[in-house]
Design a protein around this nucleic acid. Structure first.
Lengths: 260, 260
DNA sequence: CGTCCAATGCCACTTTTTGCAACAAAGCCT
DNA sequence: AGGCTTTGTTGCAAAAAGTGGCATTGGACG
């Protein structure tokens, strides 16, 4: 990391590091930084005061907190079954190792996965979702790619021919896809033709694919069957699916991961 | 590593090393360099002063820092010269008619244009900026396309080969581009090679192109010249540019629109 | 060979930055 | 509430860095 050797670090270097940590973690402690740079706490405090006057951070007792973090809580949309989706997010993130190329679909479940991925090292993220791209591109040590195309205002994500075609250009280690519903006989379905096609394409292109299905999707009937869904590695759910659905999935060789 | 042996290093050799370190670490200390070259601190200071006058580095107490690194993160930039940028946004929006296909670059000025476009009917928006896409896709009667590619975390926008290539697929009526600076002789420049290339591509593809330059950009020297910039229709500014710059632009047939 | 000149170092002096110490305020535990 | 620890503030002195003047040096060049 940044070196402070024998000579003291330049003030701007400290400022950069402070802002960097702030961007990464949302907050930093004074003692922590003073030790890192081997300077007194007053010095760090003075740095922070200066940055605060420039409006670059928010001073709090014992350190500073990122302005952006407090203001940027906006993209969180009303969520049904928020706890379940968060659990799914954590379970999904557990499958991701440092250095992987990860595809994240649009939708609230995928957003939870994105949240849970924060802190992993050296990931390459590929997504159609504007919100996910915005969230993760602010993380250091993550490279984010967005698939181009027309934005679907409901999903706030790229869709259409361009996105479909762009998928082919990537080599994905692991993909996490949303879906519209899970039928009683264990078929994964989608709301729209283009969504189903996009996800089908992804299943065939990624080394591993998991569908994210929170319990509100169980038994829901949506019109489009997702082609090739049975070639996915498995589904991640927040509660055991109804027996017939689960049975159908297992018969096709798919793993059912129940997040707790 | 570079040798300084018994004989003193030549001035140009020192300059190269200073710039090299700057490029590598973002900043260098005077004491550090003086020891390395076995010269007095004054000498290094004189070197740096010279390089600073050439616009190759930014002097700070105790050393120097790289200019490129000074480009502030997006949330901070949005605050500087906010009024000027808002005026530019309104002036730009006035050039847009219902039904047009509009390209919006990344950057805070373009974001202001996006804001000012709200309310127009039946626009098709094409952008690289995540924030702009998110903002406008929530507007009814706007269709938004995002160019795919790797996200530049500073701009929070797509860049790179994919974005460059995607530009060619659209037919744009009017494009609004940001830029890094406007030199005294009326050349429009950019911070990065890829940014300059992307904008050059856009200038040749759009029916009309306008550069957005708030007054903080006047006289600023950034490294890359934007190819073909003189084929743009004009620039939109929040204050009259310095006489020599303005003269240079008009000689090239570009309109200078001063927003008030 | 002598002179000139740019580059460098040295020095005295100013300005900025930093650390220290003492005290006030805020938080925390019982 | 009371006592203890951590954090914030402030004034001051020391250290580090910046500045400008001047002397020295080592070539370059006539």
């Amino acid at each position: 990391m940044a070196s402070q050797n024998s000579s003291r670090a330049l003030a701007p270097r400290r400022h950069d590091e402070i802002l960097k940590r702030l961007a990464a973690d949302g907050s930093v402690g004074i003692a922590e930084l003073a030790a890192f740079f081997d300077v007194s706490r007053e010095t760090i405090r003075r740095d922070m005061k200066l940055l605060a006057e420039r409006g670059q951070l928010d001073l709090v007792h014992g350190g500073a907190r990122s302005f952006a973090a407090t203001e940027a809580a906006l993209p969180l949309r009303s969520q049904e079954n928020a706890a379940g989706k968060a659990a799914i997010g954590r379970a999904a993130a557990a499958l991701v190792e440092d250095g992987m190329v990860v595809f994240l679909d649009s939708g609230t479940s995928a957003l939870e996965v994105a949240n849970a991925l924060i802190g992993k090292q050296n990931l390459t993220i590929c997504t159609t979702s504007l919100v996910i791209a915005l969230l993760l591109c602010r993380q250091p040590s993550m490279r984010v790619h967005i698939l181009g195309g027309e934005i679907d205002p409901i999903e706030e994500a790229a869709s259409g021919i361009d996105a479909l075609e762009a998928i082919g250009r990537y080599r994905i280690d692991i993909a996490f896809l949303g879906a519209g519903g899970l039928t009683p006989d264990g078929t994964i379905t989608d709301f729209t033709r283009s969504g189903a096609e996009q996800r089908a394409q992804m299943v065939t292109h990624a080394a591993k694919t998991y569908f994210l299905l929170d319990s509100s999707k169980f038994g829901r009937l949506t019109p489009m069957r997702i082609r090739n869904f049975e070639r996915a590695s498995g589904i991640i759910v927040d509660a055991p699916p109804p027996v017939p659905s689960g049975h159908g999935l297992k018969k096709k060789g798919m793993k059912v991961i129940v997040a707790g």
